[in-house]
Design a protein around this nucleic acid. Structure first.
Length: 820
RNA sequence: GCCGAAGUGGCGGAAUGGUAGACGCGGCGGUCUCAAAAACCGUUGAGGUAACACUCGUGCGAGUUCGACUCUCGCCUUCGGCACCA
């Protein structure tokens, strides 16, 4: 803490301990499946047990807890669980650095974090906790894997992976930031390895359908971009003259309308046809180029501002539509992993091809004419639609129409097919790491690749592995683990030694919460059906295309296995913002972490919760400010103070105006706070509660109302505060003579008539400028308003000598006199 | 380069066509105190005035409207995301 923090006047530590104990003893937050109330599943993304919880976690967890508590008070049977995303590379690295076993490192962290989370006073039912590194959980990862394998959704393939030469390990895609290792910033290279994949691309089309969920637009956009659908044509160029097995070069294009303008064809340097198509005198140049391309890093290759280079192979293909002989080149701007790895070059109508053609002096042939084109050379590629020219029988057509007719022509002459391409790749789940779920497969010399039998699950992760990074999975050198018997023939065979990506764990944990201790299956069918799908999911935006996309895939695949009936895991999604400190996101390495414990000790959990939610709109995040927390502390202090006014001070005969005013404010507050919490606008909800408190704290208010009225007002205040400040509101609820928990109370209802003002301030404008504010009855008529306004000296001053053209009246609000 | 979000007092923010700056932080002045802290009261966009009045003011420039922080168009800046995907 850098600046002075004020103290609370209520014994927060005693109150927190007292109520956390009582809630635990009375099982207040126990969630039962069997409950007549409608269900509500409120989920927040579970944390990685990295060690210490910081206020960033509190920010995410408090906001979710408030919403869950609010739904509970609205009469829902709420499931708001918590667990730990416990597998992962950090544990392994910590183990290497400190000589602690990943298991004990992780479990110690979980124990500490569970206490820190509990100090927030959340409504978690800890009996439903999920810890993904335990065999009881990861057994079902293996089970899902086997189901996917059986249904052709899991397969093994030889594929390039990201490799960090410094960490001596494979990295997940998400751990590669701008081509460099997330941990050590070393440039990532590639290796080709046998890997396991989940066939997420099978669901590409369905994943594009976002109509069954209510998610933020930007997340939807990010997913759509990630999937990257593009419709086009695979078009074949003839290479029969070289007498190879392959008779044609298949290119993919979205601009088949430009096919008459092809002046060259470019292969990716890694393409298998490069070698057979290289002529003798180009061999050296080509192999030099290929070697150079192989060595350059991913970042270098993908940099858009990079000069486009290429080499002529010395061979040609034939465009079957024109009979033109077209030079074949290789260029590293062509990606082997997208489309067919071969691109047709149309310099007149593609920016990259234009630059490439200029550089290598290739012809530029216009086939889609810009409006008013005079046949002269183009200064740059023309990308928009236009009129087909130099396109044989399609000349004169609009290119949009041309695209369609040329595609049909190509298909009917067997020169190509219309296809759809996706940028999204299948999900590579193999990791050459120790701290993850073993992939339950066995390699048998006689039977080949054989799945472990379901009844033999889990394949346990051995505790005594040597997990120093060697580039191979640590399990590979663990003889007892590796050597097994073939599930089919019983002969000695070897286990798969890679482990699963930890995103597998988080792709179905929301199903596990429904029946976390069920040992017969991944989830109890009835419980899972009761609670899922998640009604409201909250979490950071950083998971937009990984976790959120994988989970959607998992649910669709599980549905197709016949295990669940719905299509989407998370009906609604809300992204909270990030708490920053000293201008940056909190992180251990930056040394700008705020530990909630320090503040909890001084001002209490409720104050920290309130402050965090008051900083600004939850979705925006904001900067932690030490002095800002004073505002939250002062508010709760004030609530505490007014709750301790001696009941004997209240007068028996109330003042009816005061009563009316307070009743009106109460109903307005109920309305605002409820609407705001519903929409996660916690900052304005707290603001309304502060205003209400300020009205109740007005000097000598007790002389104007009686004690019953006072209790009615304050008890409603406690109920509305309960989701935000659960301990203090509970304590004051009890002190006000109420039994049971404030958290099981019904959310107060407001009466619209009682919330209405009967006196308003009529704003009088002359030509749009405020010239008078007149207090008036809410139902003042236009003519009365007009009359009063015209009598006002301030208004008269500004209308003097002018002709009144028009008067605009907004009932109960405003009168604007237009004069000139 | 493309897409998206945002730009309001000293600061966090409120108000999505009708009183700009709610609520809070910080500051200033006061009460209490031996003194301080806390608390309480007052004040706090800029200019202007003895005080009012009045003028200006929501990134910049136009526009629509009786009236614009809010809608439209064009810029600028910041932050995110994507980025040779053929």
């Amino acid at each position: 803490m850098t600046t002075k923090t004020i103290e609370t006047r209520f014994p927060h530590e005693i109150i927190e301990n007292k109520w956390q104990k009582r809630w635990r003893e009375s099982s207040l937050y126990k969630v039962e499946d069997n409950d007549p109330r409608p269900k509500w599943y409120e989920l927040t993304m579970y944390p990685y047990p990295s060690g210490d919880l910081h206020v960033g976690h509190w920010y995410a967890m408090t906001g979710a807890d408030i919403h869950a508590r609010f739904r509970n008070m609205q009469g829902y049977n709420v499931l708001h669980p918590m667990g730990f995303d416990a597998f992962g590379l950090n544990a392994e690295n910590a183990a290497i650095e400190r000589g602690i076993h990943p298991h004990s490192w992780t479990m110690d962290n979980i124990n500490r974090m569970r206490d820190q989370l509990a100090s927030m006073g959340p409504m978690y039912d800890w009996d439903r906790e999920v810890v993904t590194c335990l065999p009881e959980y990861y057994k079902w990862n293996q089970w899902f894997f086997l189901q996917f394998y059986k249904n052709d959704l899991a397969y093994r393939d030889f594929a390039p992976v990201n490799w960090c030469p410094s960490c001596v390990t494979v990295l997940a895609n998400e751990q590669v930031i701008d081509g460099a290792c997330e941990r050590c910033d070393t440039t990532v290279t590639h290796r080709d390895m046998n890997q396991w994949f989940f066939r997420i691309t099978k669901y590409a089309e369905e994943l594009l359908d976002q109509s069954k969920m209510d998610w933020p637009e930007r997340i939807n956009t990010m997913q759509t971009n990630w999937i990257g659908k593009s419709e086009g044509v695979e078009f074949k160029f003839d290479i029969t003259e070289y007498g190879l097995d392959t008779k044609s070069l298949v290119t993919f294009t979205t601009r088949i309308d430009t096919v008459y303008g092809v002046t060259f064809v470019v292969l990716a340097p890694e393409h298998p046809l490069v070698q057979p198509l290289t002529s003798t005198n180009q061999k050296e140049a080509v192999s030099d180029y290929v070697n150079k391309a192989r060595k350059s890093s991913e970042v270098e290759r993908l940099a858009t501002d990079r000069e486009k280079t290429g080499v002529f192979l010395g061979s040609y293909c034939v465009n079957p539509l024109t009979g033109d002989r077209i030079p074949i080149l290789i260029g590293d701007y062509v990606l082997n992993t997208y489309g067919t790895g071969i691109v047709m070059g149309v310099p007149a109508h593609d920016e990259r091809d234009f630059i490439f053609a200029k550089k290598y002096d290739l012809p530029i042939k216009v086939v889609v004419a810009p409006p008013g084109w005079d046949g002269s050379e183009l200064d740059e590629a023309y990308l928009s639609p236009g009129t087909q020219v130099n396109s044989s029988q399609f000349d004169g057509l609009n290119s949009t129409k041309g695209k369609q007719l040329i595609a049909e022509h190509i298909e009917s002459n067997d020169l190509g097919t219309r296809t759809v391409n996706y940028r999204m790749r299948d999900w590579l789940i193999s990791r050459q790491r120790y701290w993850g779920t073993p992939i339950p497969m066995v390699y048998c010399d006689a039977c080949g690749v054989v799945p472990v039998k379901e009844e033999d699950l889990p394949v346990l992760l051995p505790e005594d592995a040597e997990f120093l990074p060697t580039g191979e999975s640590p399990l590979a050198v663990h003889d007892k683990f590796v050597n097994t018997r073939c599930p089919d023939c019983g002969k000695p065979s070897k286990r798969e030694t890679d482990t699963m990506d930890t995103f597998v764990d988080s792709s179905w944990y929301f199903l596990r919460y429904a029946s976390p201790n069920y040992s017969e299956a991944a989830f109890h069918e009835k419980s899972a059906e009761l609670w899922n799908p998640v009604d409201q999911y909250t979490g950071g935006v950083e998971h937009a295309v990984m976790h959120l996309l994988y989970s959607r895939f998992f649910v669709k695949a599980t549905r197709d296995l016949g295990l669940i009936k719905y299509d989407e895991p998370f009906k609604r999604l809300f992204n909270q913002g990030t708490i920053i400190y000293k201008g940056a996101k909190m992180s251990k390495s930056r040394g700008n972490v705020i530990a909630p414990d320090d503040y909890v000790n001084v001002v209490g959990a409720d104050t920290v919760r309130t402050y965090l939610m008051f900083i600004g709109p939850w979705e925006q995040g904001g900067e932690w400010n030490d002095s800002g927390i004073n505002g939250a502390a002062r508010w709760l202090n004030k609530v505490w103070d007014i709750s301790h006014i001696d009941p004997k001070s209240f007068k028996g005969s109330p003042d009816s105006d005061t009563e009316k005013d307070l009743t009106r404010l109460l109903h307005k507050t109920i309305m605002r706070v409820g609407e705001d919490i519903e929409k996660f606008k916690y900052n304005t909800a707290i603001s309304s509660l502060m205003q209400f408190t300020n009205a109740l704290a007005e000097e000598k208010l007790f002389e104007k109302i009686n004690y019953d009225q006072w209790l009615g007002l304050t008890r409603n205040l406690y109920k509305m505060m309960a989701p935000i400040a659960p301990h203090l509101s509970e304590e004051l609820w009890e002190k006000s003579g109420m039994e049971s928990s404030v958290h099981t109370q019904e959310w107060p209802k407001y009466n619209e008539n009682l919330a209405k003002d009967d006196e308003i301030t009529l704003v009088v404008q002359v030509n749009g400028k405020v010239r008078a504010k007149i207090s008036a009855s809410v139902d003042i008529t236009e003519s009365d308003a007009n009359e009063i306004a015209m009598d006002d000296p301030g208004v008269q001053k500004h209308t003097q000598g002018l002709e009144i053209r028009k008067v605009i009246y907004v009932p109960g609000k405003l009168l604007n006199i237009v004069a000139n």
